[in-house]
Design a binder for these strands. Structure first.
Lengths: 199, 199, 199, 199
DNA sequence: AATGAATGAGTATTCATTCAT
DNA sequence: TATGAATGAATACTCATTCAT
């Protein structure tokens, strides 16, 4: 029993979004009831529906925000970087790792609840998702073109690097021995090995 | 409307297990109703309960079988191999990739429905899961000890290799251009780069 | 999407009554939500409750106004008429037909939502309803007493005439080929035949 | 509190249909909850859904059965009759009155809940409804053609006769002073006067 | 070895209404 | 003279499961 916060008037929207994020992440979309969410938020069921038209909408909003933020972090990281492919790959890894760690909960939702989005929502958000993927693909292609990455199968390399970074969310415990900076360095190294980078 | 198969008398058990496998994989545990499973199996709801005590039991059986089989494939692959770490790592990758591809559906269930196992079942199956993990860890540790793998962080390497192999299930289409043998070779290469293998 | 009217300040009461009338008529009392009414009126839900204490009150007010007006029209029509029963019957038919046509919407509510009035409201309004009925009964009785109406069962005649007139609301389309004056004449004829009038 | 009957196993379907009929008639479609129906039937809510897919389906089934039966009674009554229009009109009145009285409850539903049918159901049942109407129209037209009915506006006559007969359901109390045979005779007379029949 | 009929607890969502401002 | 935010009870419907046969 976690103690239920008393929600100040007008703060309902965020309380509900926060609660939904936590419980969706913990139990999955179908394993979560809107009652659970409302209770966890310290509000009535009706208040939930005052702010959000449906459970599906709640999920879509979380996934959208998360997907959007991920893309923006990656995009920003690349724009701040020079044009050396190795540096740029490290930048993308850093953005991804930082994202998976600092937004662990919502990134888990975006990853595992994608199939529970309605067809409509899935189509709407797919472009954003692919845009993020393309950042990786283009970058690796460029490295290969320049001869600094030598991997024979760039798409497999890309998927492997992303999968390795994503998996961090499943085991990493913030506040433990390993710092975020450690992670960034380690997974940057791994990524460069995966694309077979030669200085 | 897929035509429902007429189940031969006595074949009920398998028909139900097969149906559960497909639908759990497609919609997730909580997104699946026992009615869906029974209907898909071409049997009555009561027949389902004749063969299986509960929905949870059905899930646990699938996860158990899948986890068991994975471990055995890995174990067998290693036993057939010599003691060269690189070869052994390739063997483990081969076992994993072949497993993810040939048992794509059940491996997806084992991966994503783990949290929906009851505490009891989760504890019961956890040993098996860890045993498989240990095969990887021990192997990489051995490679490092021998100086043929030079990765600084063997656990991160292990997680990355496994994550890369597992991700195959999400995109690979059997019957397409890429053969299973291609995959095994490509991901063996990637794995060896991840552990920083030097001939 | 019908465009919602902007309600001038102070005109809220009528806007709500009008909206309630339309929607109650269209979907029935239980098929209508107060939210529908407020939205249709272009006002907030709270504004509705500022002006009207409850949904039930809203219905009762509409039924009352309608029933009252019907009685007054009938009463006035009779007072303007001489004492010839046939003329008086035509006058009552005219009042009724004109009412059903010009107040089609509210008369439909009064007719079909009567049962959804609270017991209290039903009892309060019943006297008014019966008063209108008595106008018909007394008139027909008078005609029979004078020997100009020869129907053997005056109450059945009364119910039949009223039913015939009321039914007009279900099919008549104002602005079509049949004018209101046509209707008044046709249904006056029918009424006189029903009571078996002999000049 | 009416005592709830214990429903024998297997008799659920009828118990629910009967209960739905009664409560829909009493409170209207939207005024009735499926819980009310199940409780009234002496069964669980789930049993209701075992037998009927939805509340709407329940309504449509009742309306369909009622509309169908009404048409068949009218059709049968006409087929048993000779070709004299006056006799045939009396036959139709008899069928209608008997129907309204003996199937009072369902005929009230068919009359007042028509608008609560889904568009789909309404379209499906509309043909049946019109077929019944046509029996009346054709008959009156025939009487007019033969010169035995002299009404100037046959459609208004038709509507009036039907409205008069239908209204019986609103006031008639079986078991009172007036017998069904009385009603049939009285309303036959009224009908013949409405169409202005001359022997 | 299997079924048809039934259940109680739960689902997402909407209801009429009220509160604080 | 209004409103935005909130509520508790109800809504139609589905769930996993059990019972009698």
């Amino acid at each position: 029993m976690t103690s239920l916060p008393t929600v100040p008037r007008g703060a309902g929207r965020d309380a509900i979004t926060d609660a939904a994020r936590e419980i969706f992440a913990e139990r999955g979309y179908h394993g979560t009831s809107v009652r659970d969410i409302a209770r966890h938020a310290g509000l009535s069921l009706s208040a939930l529906y005052y702010w959000h038209p449906s459970k599906q909408h709640l999920l879509a909003a979380l996934v959208e925000e998360s997907t959007q933020e991920y893309f923006e972090r990656c995009d920003a990281a690349l724009r701040e970087e020079g044009d050396e492919p190795a540096d740029r790959l490290r930048a993308l890894v850093r953005a991804t790792v930082e994202y998976r760690v600092s937004r662990r909960v919502e990134s888990a939702i975006a990853a595992s609840e994608w199939r529970n989005l309605s067809l409509e929502n899935r189509e709407r958000l797919d472009g954003l998702r692919q845009a993020a993927t393309r950042l990786w693909s283009d970058l690796i292609a460029e490295g290969v073109a320049r001869g600094v990455f030598r991997c024979a199968h760039p798409e497999d390399a890309r998927r492997s690097v992303i999968a390795a970074c994503n998996a961090i969310a499943q085991w990493y415990e913030p506040g433990g021995d390993i710092t975020l900076a450690d992670l960034v360095e380690r997974y940057g190294d791994i990524a460069l090995r995966i694309v077979d980078h030669r200085g």
